[in-house]
Amino acid sequence: MRRIIAIALLAIIVMGISLAVREIPFGKTDTKVGEYYLNEGREETGAANIVTSVVVNYRGFDTLGEIAVLFTAAIGLGAVFGSRKKRKVAEEVEKSSLIVYTGCRFLFPVILLVGAYIFIYGHLTPGGGFQGGAVVASAFLLMYLTCRGKRVRDKSNKVVESLGGLIFVGMGLVGLVIGKGFLFNFLPKGEFLTLFSAGIIPIIYIAIGFKVGAELAGVLDNLIEESK
């Protein structure tokens, strides 16, 4: 009975959407905002990656809201699990074999380096804070799965995450203090296509990369600790 109602509802929505999608042409865009960002983005921000300049500079406030949502989800996850008594008994973890353990110890700094490269050069090549933070979190996932018994200290995780968020908001408030608006680009633009260019964009992306990496690693740590 439930299936028949669901299929009838979906059939009605399919007919409606297929009539509407026929009007959208594929491969032509009429938007003026995208053209403005493409034409003026190079002189106004100095970043080579236009998507980065849209995310951090032109729509920086939306990125602040997204960081707030991620932070709320991580806190909610910690609050849902935090009311169990932490087991202080030293449990016996079976150690992994020597080949797997050595492989993990060799790969972990390499993956961290690749993740850091992705979020440091976010304004020159495809990439940025969120992609680099996800790669850093996968390095921590590798460590939790293979080298059993090694943990990240809770306190240093929280310190890194809070510092990342504070640097982002602090940069925005400096723009407010000098009188030109929140998240105003106040550092010099520099030379095009070098590392130290585009004002405050690399600094904000580095802070976001650290914050997202530490947050996702903390989420994984909470889930694995819960499921033992």
Binding site: T29, T31, V33, G34, Y37, L38, I50, V51, V54, V55, R59, D62, T63, E66, V69, L70, G128, F130, V212
Partner: peptide, 15 residues
């Protein structure tokens, strides 16, 4: 290509 939908989808994936 238009850069604005890519910025929106980046936010959407994280949320």
């Amino acid at each position: 290509v238009d850069p604005v939908p890519q910025a929106l989808v980046l936010t959407g994936i994280v949320i």
